[in-house]
Amino acid sequence: MATQSSRSAARLMMAPAVILLLGWMLVPLLMTLWFSFRAYLPLRGGDQGFVGFDNYVRFVTSSAFWPSIVTTLAIVVGALAICIIFGVLLAILLDQQMWGQGVVRILIIAPFFVMPTVSALVWKNIFMDPVNGLFAHLWRFFGADPIIWLSDIPVASIILIVSWQWLPFATLILLTAIQSLDTEQLEAAEMDGAPVLKRFWFIVLPHLGRAITIVILIQTIFLLSIFAEIFVTTGGAFGTRTLTYLIFQRVLESQNVGLGSAGGVYAIILANIVAIFLMRIVGKNLDA
């Protein structure tokens, strides 16, 4: 049993981390809230006072808002779909017996460790460049006209880059889940003559349900806030402006802090909706 003194010692030991995170959360959050209700343009007149919900209304009624929501959703949903579908397939593949499994695992995980600015820049220039890119060479080899990736299909291009970065993470989590699958159950089903697809659909997929949910929630939070991939490739042009990027432009590029802060509050609310579901799963697991 913990004694009284060890309890107060425990509280003391927790204090630095708790206080720091509390400050890190509250101070900027309150400042964002404060700015969001003010007309604040640091380079054009400074703080011009309280404007109520003006910024909130102007942010959602600006012509850039809905396109940014559509782009954000397209990137999140597109990248998630690719990561889940290929992640499940890769996890099943890696779970099979083979030679050199460790090396293959490393090859597949590697993209996760590449810093976002590097992968964005390498994909943009070395692969997607319409003149000298590797894809352009490949297209010309087959007699086709090269695609101008980042201006013809910019959102799809960014989905491709982001998926490449996040597929390893999804694969690893799904592989961990698959390895905890009871193989006897699968063998029994095989003996009873259940075909591969049925075994996958009725045994493997339900077992992966929880892991898939977790991949969706965690990756959604990260995908909602991707920044460097857009900053380096298109700079928000060609319809690749996500909500995150739109807020960044309002705040730092056009220095309309009030408007950007209102956008920031929307982004925080959006992320929190996803976070609540994730926390519930994590919280349940803590009790177990």
Binding site: L29, S225, F248, V251, S261, G264, A267, L270, D287
Partner: peptide, 30 residues
């Protein structure tokens, strides 16, 4: 090692600070 009733809440709260979108607090930090 000295868990209390609030330990779980504190852990989850810490995690929730990680979920804050950075861009939402970009200007204050700047």
């Amino acid at each position: 090692f000295v868990p209390s009733k609030r330990t779980k809440d504190i852990l989850l709260w810490m995690l929730s600070t990680k979920m804050l979108p950075a861009v939402g607090v970009l200007y204050p930090i700047y």
